[in-house]
Nucleic acid binder design. Structure first.
Length: 594
DNA sequence: GCCGTTTTCGGCCCGACTGTTTTCAGTCG
């Protein structure tokens, strides 16, 4: 039978929600399907596995009806009720929903009036009709709609960029430029980055900025002079522009007295705000970006800062990274939020590549161990782990590899000693290695060579296309191959926007990691951010420990640590969960037990 | 269709903006 991925199921439910919108079904049913879709899409385990374990009802937003739908899907391959509802809607409606500004109702009306019956060419057919001015004559559409939709289609087709979310680090840079620009205007008193960028989500869609200004009109006008392709919308409280790089930037302006409520609202996430507002309603309080009011009253209590806003609701301040609707509101009410790990807690970095050539099968680093030590010194680290890739197994005999490893250890030992003497410092250097887990689960390093390392990181760099079961076995075999295996590097193998992480049974892997005290790595490279935050959350709940490593291939990359920290924080990690927050003496007991 | 520290029934986040409307629906975040 056909396998159904979480994403496919989420898409099916979203289609269902759109169909219900067109059919004017009860709007809360629509929301229910959307919520179930969101929830399933963000799940860290397969819906199919939860079905096997009879745990479908544990998914938030999935109740008796949707459980029975999923059950039917996995048993028979289809869902009669959903099929019959979707059958009422022409297929060509759904591709049109990808066009910004077109929702289910208007898309349906266009398909209906213009007889857009071919779902593969629906967008092109619509574009043609727009150019022939056939849309402005349709009831409830006009000249402006015709132009707007046409322009949105053109931007949409050209801007594959817009579809894609960009990396956190790229968004960070774009935002930095904008801030610099906004700072030059005297009407602007304060600037904050909000939205997903403030929550440090791994990839970013739009960039959201809030400002305080006494003259919002002038401030907005100034913002709209930032180099752009077009102004998407402009009103008294804010504006949105589209940049040349395909990014949309939303600006909101607020007075100082209400700024806290605005920050809260505009930081999101949507799910967090829904959870917060639902809770507030049980206290007869209604929340908005202007403040808090009693239900039925018109008087709004403003808040100039977020902390007061949360505390007024009887809960602790919730750090932005936690605002994802993962139960943070309940924890805040009970004063049980985690004390999140911070960048300042980090005392070392285990995953660093130097330019020492041990003839690996993957890439070398750019800088010498001395240069890496200089950088580590600037970062005030107590220790570092040099984890070059293992010597290639194809080009060397075992004896050669052992000899390379021995020489390398001597070299690093000598360099480290000399560097420390020269600088009157004590930065401990652990001679480590990043060792490939081969497809059969064995490690790409002969047993005898382990004598010349303090510990190793194991990771996967090849043969990603395996079944979930094979991959799980491969990883567990690799982790169990030697007692010096201490870290499982970039565990899912994902490359953001380029490659999905591979499927694996994470529960089983967590079990082995916990038992053998092997840390799961949060790889801080902006291209990876792996483990992903949702799995970090699961791993910590399971009782695993982690490390946060830069995987630097040049010394500057060591500063990417901050992105790894944000992943840890988004996964509710505390200082004690992260081994490289430990002092050298404490850390050593784990990494190099005698 | 989901869900429960006021509820197993009766609620469900909240507001801005836009266009085509003479009072609102659709879309978005």
């Amino acid at each position: 039978m056909k396998a159904y991925s979480n994403l496919q199921i989420a898409e099916l439910f979203r289609k269902m929600a759109a169909a219900y919108q067109i059919l004017n079904e009860n709007r809360f049913k629509i929301i229910a399907y959307e919520r179930a879709a969101d929830s399933i899409e963000h799940l860290t385990s397969d819906v199919k596995d939860l079905w096997d374990d009879k745990k479908l009802d544990e998914i938030p937003g999935v109740g008796t009806t949707i459980v029975s739908h999923l059950d039917e899907l996995f048993r028979t391959g289809s869902i009669k009720h959903i099929d019959s509802v979707l059958a009422k809607i022409p297929e060509s409606v759904f591709p049109l929903l990808l066009v910004p500004g077109l929702g289910p109702k208007r898309a349906y009306k266009l398909v209906d009036e213009l007889h857009l019956n071919n779902k593969t060419t629906a967008i092109d057919d619509l574009e043609k009709a727009l150019r022939e001015h056939k849309v402005s004559t349709i009831e409830s559409f006009g000249e402006k709609s015709e132009q707007d939709i046409l322009q949105n289609i053109v931007t949409f087709k050209k801007g594959a960029i817009k579809e894609k979310r960009i990396l956190l680090s790229e968004a960070d840079q774009i935002a930095a430029h904008l801030i610099e620009f906004l700072k030059k205007n005297k009407n602007i008193e304060r600037i904050d980055i909000l939205g997903s960028l403030r929550r440090y989500v791994a990839t970013i869609g739009d960039i959201d900025i809030a400002i305080i200004s006494k003259d919002s009109e002038k401030a907005i006008e100034y913002f709209c002079t930032y180099p752009h392709v077009k102004i998407i919308e402009q009103g008294p409280t804010g504006a949105s522009i589209l940049l040349h790089n395909g990014r949309q930037v939303d600006l909101r302006v607020q007075e100082k007295r209400s700024y806290g409520a605005m920050l809260q609202y505009f930081t999101g996430s949507k799910n967090h705000n829904i959870a917060l507002r639902s809770y507030a309603l049980t206290k007869h309080l209604s929340l908005s970006e202007y403040g808090i009011k009693r239900v039925g009253s018109k008087e709004i209590k403003p808040f100039s800062n977020e902390k007061d806003f949360y505390e007024y609701l009887g809960m602790d301040y919730i750090p932005p990274e936690l605002r994802e609707g993962r139960g943070e509101v309940d924890h805040a009410i009970k004063h049980e939020l985690p004390a999140l790990v911070e960048l300042a807690d980090i005392k070392g970095d285990f995953h660093l590549h130097t330019n020492y050539n041990l003839e690996p099968s993957h890439d070398l680093g750019l800088h010498s161990i001395d240069e890496i030590l200089d950088e580590a010194n600037d970062l005030q680290y107590e220790y570092i782990g040099i984890s070059d890739h293992n010597p290639s197994t194809g080009n060397h005999t075992e004896t050669e590899i052992i000899s390379i490893m021995k020489k390398r250890q001597e070299y690093y030992k000598k360099q480290a000693e000399e560097w420390n003497t020269r600088h009157h410092k004590t930065i401990h250097v652990c001679t480590m290695l990043e060792v490939d887990i081969k497809p059969d689960g064995t490690l790409a390093l002969p047993d005898e060579a382990f004598a010349y390392v303090d510990a190793v990181i194991v990771s996967i760099h090849s043969s990603f296309a395996m079944t979930k079961e094979e991959m799980t076995t491969r990883i567990i075999t690799g982790m169990s191959s030697h007692s010096k295996v201490k870290i499982f590097g970039h565990p899912t193998g994902r490359l953001l926007n380029r490659r999905e992480g591979f499927e694996a049974d994470w529960k089983k892997i967590f079990e082995v990691a916990k038992k053998k005290d092997i840390a799961l790595e949060i790889n801080a490279s902006p291209y990876r951010l792996d483990l992903p935050d949702a799995l970090v959350y699961d791993a910590i709940k399971f009782g695993c420990r982690l490390t946060i490593d830069s995987d630097a291939h040049q010394k500057e990359d060591m500063n990417m640590m901050k992105y790894g920290i944000s992943v840890g924080r988004r996964g509710w990690a505390e200082k004690r969960d992260i081994y490289n927050t430990y002092s050298y003496n404490e850390m050593k007991k784990w990494l190099m037990p005698k």
